[in-house]
Simulated assay, not measured.
Amino acid sequence: MHQFKELEIWKRSRQFCSEIYETTSYFPDNEKFGLTNQLGRASISISSNIAEGSSRKSNKDFSRFLEIAIGSCYEIETQLLIASDLNFLTISQSDKLINELSEITKMISKFKSILKI
């Protein structure tokens, strides 16, 4: 088992979740149950799957949860691009979030690759 609170991927994804919530608080009210909700849920999913996977007894199980976290990263990237298309985000806001997300995705992938399965 891994101590998820000590994992940099968990810390960064948790911080990223806060950034998503801060950013989406400025989305139009009619998006409360649309992109705002989807982005919030997907961003929570990253750190949550890292935490849940870390409790598993095998690295193979943990690896599966990391795959799910990566899937959530790709989901968020798509949603951020759509939010940008709809002018809910500026290009610089979108780029900043997508760059941070890309770093998190790479970190999770690298961590997953070093797990002994």
Results as ranks from 00 to 15, higher is better:
63 S>F: 09
9 I>W: 00
49 N>F: 12
98 I>V: 11
72 S>D: 09
38 Q>I: 01
113 S>F: 03
61 D>A: 14
87 N>I: 04
99 N>H: 10
65 F>M: 02
89 L>Y: 00
54 S>L: 14
77 E>C: 12
74 Y>K: 07
54 S>F: 15
26 Y>W: 05
72 S>A: 11
65 F>C: 01
46 I>T: 11
112 K>F: 04
87 N>E: 14
98 I>C: 01
51 A>R: 10
56 R>V: 06
9 I>K: 11
21 Y>H: 12
92 S>V: 04
13 S>R: 12
106 K>C: 08
51 A>T: 05
111 F>S: 13
78 T>S: 15
18 S>I: 00
94 S>N: 12
5 K>G: 05
15 Q>K: 15
22 E>N: 13
18 S>Y: 07
50 I>C: 08
56 R>G: 07
101 L>A: 03
72 S>E: 10
117 I>E: 15
75 E>Q: 12
12 R>S: 14
27 F>Y: 04
108 I>W: 05
15 Q>F: 06
32 K>H: 06
94 S>P: 01
38 Q>R: 11
34 G>P: 02
98 I>L: 04
94 S>V: 02
81 L>V: 05
105 T>H: 13
53 G>T: 10
116 K>P: 06
43 S>D: 12
66 L>T: 10
81 L>K: 05
94 S>K: 13
104 I>W: 01
34 G>W: 00
80 L>M: 12
105 T>W: 06
10 W>H: 07
68 I>V: 02
70 I>C: 04
61 D>G: 13
13 S>F: 07
41 R>F: 08
21 Y>P: 08
94 S>W: 00
32 K>T: 03
43 S>E: 08
71 G>F: 08
1 M>Y: 06
65 F>Y: 08
103 E>G: 14
11 K>Y: 06
84 S>V: 00
111 F>A: 12
22 E>C: 01
16 F>K: 15
82 I>S: 02
88 F>C: 01
104 I>P: 02
45 S>G: 14
6 E>G: 07
13 S>G: 13
38 Q>P: 03
8 E>P: 04
42 A>N: 07
91 I>F: 01
117 I>A: 10
16 F>S: 15
44 I>M: 12
113 S>T: 01
80 L>F: 07
114 I>T: 12
96 K>Q: 12
54 S>E: 15
83 A>V: 00
75 E>L: 09
117 I>Y: 07
104 I>R: 04
32 K>L: 15
69 A>N: 06
107 M>N: 11
36 T>H: 05
103 E>L: 13
26 Y>H: 14
36 T>V: 05
11 K>G: 14
48 S>R: 10
37 N>E: 08
87 N>P: 00
86 L>K: 13
66 L>N: 09
72 S>H: 03
106 K>A: 13
92 S>G: 01
96 K>T: 10
57 K>Y: 11
116 K>W: 05
84 S>K: 13
95 D>I: 03
12 R>V: 06
73 C>E: 04
65 F>W: 02
88 F>N: 01
80 L>I: 15
6 E>H: 06
76 I>S: 09
57 K>W: 03
